[in-house]
Amino acid sequence: MIEFIKGVFILSGALFMLLAALGILRLPDLLTRMHATTKAAALGVILIMLAVALHFGEVDVVARALAIIVFILMTAPVAAHVIGRAGYFVGSKLWSGTVKDELRPNYDPLTHELKSGMETEANARREPKESDPS
């Protein structure tokens, strides 16, 4: 039984990794490629590490496999976030089929300021302060 579950985990993990690779090859622009790679590859690694934990079944190995899983779950979104943001602000083109982009109008490439679009008149008004240079 454990052998069977292990085999299913390993095979599906490898399939998800192949899916990620196919996605990175086929998808049209940077951000959609990141969708395919980060999540599918992270899921693949998680499945294979679960198989490793099942295979050995000792405390130290299971702890290490779980540590890898937690590590992947914590770092994959952070890495995707930094690369996606850098790519977007460096100016990689979006695919022609992109239907809307609510970020571009709120971003100022000169000052790197990113507005929320929720600033109202009241928020934007500036009161004179003591520390202002005269």
Partner: peptide, 8 residues
């Protein structure tokens, strides 16, 4: 992605 696959 390379790094992830190598980990697997």
């Amino acid at each position: 992605l390379f790094a992830s696959i190598v980990v697997g």
